[in-house]
Design a protein around this nucleic acid. Structure first.
Length: 732
DNA sequence: CCCTGAAAAA
C-alpha cells in the first residue's frame, strides 16, 4: 500500500540515519511482534520530544499497522492514536480504519466511534469499520443510521459494507429497510457476490420470509458453507426444523463440508424436534471433526441433551465449558426445569446469583418455572422476593410465570398479588391467573376475571379458554363451561384436544355419558389421549363399564405403555365390584412389565420438604407420627367415619392399605404436619398421584376435627380442605 | 487493510 502524501512529507526528515539502538525493534516490525510491551516502550521513546529519533527507510504504514494488529488492549490503541495525532498523520485513512477495527474487536465500540468522529472525510473503508462495529455488537439501529449517513455523503457501499448492513436490517428486524438495501444491491450489481447474497438470504430468513430467502438461495451460482448454513438456520428459526435437516443433508450430498457454525445450526434443529437419535449422530460428527471443545458447540450440545431430557449428559458438557456464558446457564437451567429436575434448576440459579452472574428474563423465568414444580411455598416466596427486587420485576414473561408458580404452590391469593402489581397485563398474564383460579376450584373468580379481561380490551386466546373450561370443570359450573366452549369460535379460536377433553369432563360430571360419547364422535379432529382419558374417568365415577372399556381400549391403542390407563380401568371395575376383571388387569399389567407408580407425599415444614411413602417408617420422628396417626384414626371413628371397604381395592394406583389404620403417604404427611406446626397453621401437601377416595373423605373430616386448612396438590389439581368440605366438590 | 453465518424459553 502506498503511503499517503501527508505521511511521505512527514517521513522525509527521518530518512538519513539508521538508529542502531532500535535495530531489533525495527526488524520486529517487519515480522510479527511477539513482545508488544517492548514495542510500546519503543513508541513512548518515539513520542518523547527530547529524543528525536531518526530512521532510515522506515515504512510508517506497516510499522503502525503492525503495532495496531499486535495491540492487546484499548490502552495500546490509545497510545497509537495519540502518536498519530502528535505526528499530524491522524488523517491517514488506512491507519484510522485499522484503529477503528481493532477497537471494535476489543468491544470498545464507543471508543471506535470517537476515533471515527475525529476523521473529517471517511472513505468506504472507515465507514465499513464503524458499521461493522455496530452490527457486531447488535447495535443495529446505529449501524443502519451510519449507513444512511454514508449515503448522504455520496460514499458508495462495497461488498464489505452490505453484509453488515443486511445483518443490521435482519437484526432489528426491519423488512422495509432490508428490501431497500436489496434494491440497491441489485442496482449496484452485487448479484454475483456470494458474501452479499448470503447476507440477503439471512436477512429474509430473519424477517420470517423464508420463501424469499429460498428464492435468493436457489439463484446463487456459487454456494459456500455459509449460504447453506443461512438456509439451515433460517428454517430452524422459522419453525421448520425438519426442512432445516433436509437442507443439511442436501448440503452434505453436494460435498460441502460443514463448519462448526453449520453444526451449531443443525444441532439447534435437532433440539427443536427433540430428536436425540439424529442429534447424537451430529455429535459424533463433531467429534470426528475434532470440534468437541469448540465452546459454542458445547453450548449447543448442552442445550440439545438438556432439552431431550438427558440432563446428566448435558451437565457433563456444561462442566466442560471454561467460561460459561448466559446462554449456557440458561440452557442448563431450563433443561433442568423442563425435565422435572427442579431442585437442580433452582440450585444452579442460586449459584448464578452467588457468583454475581447477570441473569436475564429467560433465566428468571426458567427458575420460577422450576419453583412452581418444587411446590414449596417458602421457596416460591423467596423467588418472588428476589424477582421483585431485580430488574425483571416488570417483565411480563417472568410475572406470568410467578403467577403460575404461586398458583401451583397452593397460594392463589399471592398469585393475585403478583397479577395486581403487573402493569402491562398481556393475554398470558390474564390467562395464568385464570388458570390459577381454575386449579383451585375458584371458578367464579376465574369467570369474573375473564369479564374484566375483556373490558380491558385484551382478547382471550386458546390458553385462556382452557383455563376457563378447567375452572368451570373444577367448580361444577357446567352451564357456563358449555357456553364458553361455544364462545371460542367468536374469537376465531379452534378448540384443541384439551378443550374437547374439558367438555367431555364437564358432560361426564353431570352424568351425560352418552352425550359425551356423541360429542366425541362428532369432533372435527381425531380424539386423543386426553379426550378418551376424560371419558374413562367419567365412566369410573358413574360406573358405566361398557363405555369405560371402550374408552380404555382406545387409550391402550394410543399409549399401550401408560400405566395410568390400566389403573383407571381397574378402578372402574373396582367401583362396579367386578373383582375378577380387576385381577385380570393386574395380570395384564404384570405381563406388560408395567408396575404402578409409587405414591409419595411431600409436606413443607419450616422451609424444608419432607417426603413420605406409604407406611414410611424412615422418618426420625416416625414413632410420634404413627401415634398421631392412631389418635386421628380414633377420632375419625368417633366422628362416625367409616372407610369404604370397596375402595380399599378401589384405587390400584394408591398404596396398599394396612389392616388397622390407613397409612397412605398423605396421611403420614398430615400427621407429621400436625405434630410439627402450631395450632391453626395451614398444611400444604403435594402428592404425585391423584387423591384416593378414602383419604379424600378422611381429610375432609380431619380438617374439621383439628380445625385446620389442609391444601393438597395432587397430580391434577388442588384440594382445599376446610371445615369438613373440599373445594373440589368431591369430583376430581 | 475490512469478511458473512448461530446459540436460550413461552
Amino acid at each position: 500500500m502506498a503511503s499517503s502524501p501527508l505521511l511521505t512529507k512527514i517521513s522525509h526528515p527521518f530518512s538519513s540515519i539508521y538508529p542502531t539502538k532500535f535495530t531489533p525493534f525495527y526488524l520486529a516490525t517487519e515480522q510479527s511482534f511477539k513482545f508488544p510491551s517492548t514495542l510500546f516502550n519503543f513508541v513512548k521513546h518515539l513520542s518523547s520530544n527530547d529524543n528525536p529519533t531518526i530512521f532510515h527507510n522506515f515504512n510508517f504504514d506497516s510499522f503502525y499497522a503492525n503495532l495496531i494488529d499486535n495491540s492487546s488492549h484499548k490502552i495500546n490503541l490509545t497510545q497509537v492514536h495519540a502518536k498519530l495525532l502528535l505526528l499530524g498523520i491522524q488523517q491517514n485513512g488506512f491507519l484510522v480504519s485499522k484503529l477503528v477495527n481493532a477497537a471494535v474487536n476489543f468491544g470498545e465500540i464507543s471508543y471506535a466511534r470517537k476515533v471515527f468522529d475525529k476523521f473529517p472525510d471517511p472513505d468506504v473503508f472507515l465507514w465499513n469499520a464503524i458499521i461493522r462495529g455496530y452490527s457486531k455488537y447488535n447495535l443495529f439501529a446505529s449501524a443502519v443510521e451510519m449507513y444512511s449517513r454514508m449515503q448522504v455523503l455520496w460514499v458508495s457501499p462495497d461488498g464489505y459494507t452490505l453484509p453488515h448492513v443486511l445483518k443490521a436490517c435482519g437484526g432489528i428486524p426491519s423488512f422495509r429497510m432490508g428490501q431497500q438495501v436489496h434494491g440497491q444491491i441489485f442496482r449496484l450489481g452485487f448479484e454475483k457476490d456470494v458474501f452479499v447474497q448470503n447476507g440477503v438470504v439471512a436477512f429474509y430468513a430473519k424477517c420470517g420470509k423464508i420463501a424469499s430467502a429460498k428464492v435468493v438461495f436457489d439463484r446463487l451460482e456459487i454456494r459456500n458453507v455459509v449460504s447453506w448454513t443461512s438456509m439451515i438456520s433460517g428454517y430452524a428459526q422459522n419453525g421448520q426444523p425438519i426442512e432445516a435437516l433436509r437442507v443439511f443433508d442436501e448440503m452434505r450430498s453436494t460435498g460441502v463440508m460443514p463448519d462448526w457454525i453449520a453444526l451449531v445450526s443443525v444441532i439447534r434443529a435437532h433440539t427443536d424436534v427433540e430428536d436425540l437419535e439424529h442429534g447424537k449422530s451430529i455429535h459424533s460428527c463433531v467429534i470426528k471433526m475434532g470440534l468437541e471443545l469448540e465452546p459454542d458447540l458445547l453450548i449447543a450440545l448442552t442445550a440439545m441433551y438438556a432439552k431431550c431430557g438427558q440432563v446428566m449428559v448435558a451437565r457433563s458438557f456444561f462442566n466442560l465449558v471454561k467460561v460459561p456464558n448466559l446462554i449456557l446457564w440458561n440452557a442448563m437451567i431450563s433443561g433442568y426445569a423442563k425435565n422435572g429436575y427442579a431442585e437442580e434448576a433452582v440450585k444452579l440459579f442460586r449459584d448464578m446469583i452467588s457468583h454475581n452472574i447477570k441473569t436475564d428474563s429467560i433465566t428468571a423465568r426458567s427458575a420460577v418455572l422450576a419453583c412452581a414444580q418444587v411446590g414449596s411455598f417458602d421457596l416460591a416466596r423467596w423467588m418472588d422476593n428476589y424477582i421483585s427486587k431485580s430488574e425483571h420485576k416488570d417483565d411480563v414473561f417472568v410475572n406470568s410465570a410467578l403467577i403460575d408458580m404461586f398458583a401451583k404452590c397452593g397460594n392463589v391469593d399471592m398469585a393475585r398479588m403478583v397479577f395486581n402489581r403487573t402493569l402491562d397485563k398481556d393475554v398470558v398474564v390474564w390467562s395464568s391467573m385464570i388458570v390459577g383460579y381454575g386449579l383451585h376450584g375458584r371458578g367464579r373468580e376465574a369467570l369474573d376475571l375473564y369479564h374484566l379481561m375483556k373490558q380491558s380490551g385484551v382478547s382471550p386466546n386458546a390458553v385462556t379458554f382452557l383455563g376457563l373450561l378447567t375452572a368451570c370443570n373444577h367448580s361444577g359450573l357446567v352451564e357456563d363451561g358449555w357456553q364458553l366452549f361455544h364462545c371460542m369460535k367468536d374469537y376465531g379460536i379452534e378448540p384443541r384436544h384439551q378443550h374437547y377433553a374439558c367438555l367431555v369432563d364437564l358432560l361426564g360430571r353431570s352424568g351425560y355419558l352418552d352425550q359425551a360419547y356423541d360429542f366425541i364422535m362428532n369432533m372435527p379432529i381425531e380424539p386423543g389421549v386426553s379426550v378418551w382419558g376424560a371419558l374413562l374417568s367419567a365412566c369410573k365415577i358413574h360406573r358405566h363399564v361398557t363405555l369405560g372399556e371402550y374408552a380404555a381400549e382406545r387409550l391402550f391403542s394410543l399409549e399401550s405403555y401408560n400405566t395410568g390407563h390400566y389403573v383407571q380401568l381397574s378402578n372402574l371395575y373396582a367401583s362396579a365390584r367386578m373383582w375378577d376383571r380387576v385381577a385380570k388387569i393386574r395380570v395384564l399389567m404384570r405381563d406388560k412389565g408395567l408396575s404402578k407408580d409409587l405414591g409419595y407425599s411431600l409436606i413443607e415444614i419450616n422451609g424444608k420438604l419432607e417426603a413420605f411413602r406409604v407406611g414410611d417408617k424412615s422418618h426420625p420422628r416416625s414413632k410420634e407420627i404413627f401415634e398421631e396417626l392412631e389418635s386421628l384414626e380414633k377420632r375419625l371413628k368417633q366422628a362416625g367415619f367409616v372407610p369404604d371397604r370397596n375402595s380399599s381395592l378401589h384405587d390400584l394406583n394408591e398404596e396398599e392399605m394396612e389392616e388397622t389404620l390407613c397409612n397412605h403417604s398423605e396421611r403420614l404427611a398430615i400427621a407429621f404436619g400436625l405434630i410439627s406446626t402450631a395450632q391453626g397453621t395451614t398444611l400444604r401437601i403435594t402428592k404425585n398421584l391423584r387423591a384416593c377416595i378414602n383419604c379424600h373423605s378422611a381429610t375432609k373430616l380431619i380438617s374439621k376435627l383439628v380445625n385446620r386448612e389442609i391444601i393438597v396438590r395432587d397430580a391434577n389439581r388442588f384440594h382445599h380442605f376446610k371445615d369438613g368440605v373440599c373445594s373440589c366438590g368431591d369430583y376430581w
